[in-house]
Amino acid sequence: MRDKLEALGNQTLIDIEAAMDAAAIEQIRLRVFGKKGALSEVLKGLGQVSALERPQIGAFANTWKERLEEGLASRGQICEERDLDKRLAAEAVDVTAPARRLHPGSLHILTQTTRRIAAILGRLGFESASGPEIETEYFNFEAVNIPADHPARQMHDTFFIKPGHVLRTHTSSVQMRVLREKKPPIRIFAAGAVYRCEADATHSPLFHQIEGLFVDKGVRMSDLKGVLGELLSELFGTVKFRMRPSYFPFVEPGAEVDIECFKCRGVGHCQLCRSSGWIEVLGCGMVHPFLLTSAGVTDVTGFALGLGVERMAMLLHEVNDIRHMFQGDMRFLQLFRFRGY
């Protein structure tokens, strides 16, 4: 019995030392300590051992059992480490190889510019409004004080869709719609596409405008000047600007707004401002009384301003030809990666 235990113990110790992975260790454990394992087989013979010898043999068997379990545990740990090392080696990749990169994208600079301006106007309390792009002649012209024989009607080269309907030539067409729908105080901006029958390096048959309208009791021209100051300084930084009296049928007094040329600061030969020192950026003025009375709003005054998004984008991003905006050339679009406005 003692010999048998001794033989099993020694053989198992050799097997344990030879085991190379956790699976082999587990196999040995089952073979030796399992229900029908080798140890149980040997200990079955304990019955035939005399009662006198039995405790000693029992103790001897326990000693072997402990030795073997210890051996299994320590070898088992080594094997587990080896297994993990193997797995880690197998799973390793070349981390310098390229990532699975998605394509980048960007917002068009017209969208970026529109959002910049909308955000500024939004902070000043202006809410977004809109109107149709195929507009009635009435809302596009008559409603904003441009009757059929008005000289200003010729300033707009209009696309006609059907009798009485045109592609809107300006976002000012939204003014009367809002004046009729809402009650003062009205503080809105309307952004969108407008259409004129012309095409060259500075004109496109489709372009975009943003119109601001503010109508309330006691609105003064100085309020317009204040809003312009905010808008222009947020867009162009601290910049000098001026309001030059001008004529738009839907405002009176009307003015064009120039900013000091940020390229030349008014000195020397400059292509951007044609050496005038000033860059025209938008048109504005006090809402013409015709609009207010025909919308049926009384006892209020207001101001309106309108700007070209393409012109702003071209100034802000130094784009030299308006046609770049509409060609979808990836080389152009990639220049203006997304900025979250």
Binding site: S106, M325, L333
Partner: peptide
């Protein structure tokens, strides 16, 4: 844009 497209503007 997040899905990797460039915004364009047609006429």
């Amino acid at each position: 844009v997040a899905l990797g497209f460039y915004e364009t503007c047609t006429l």
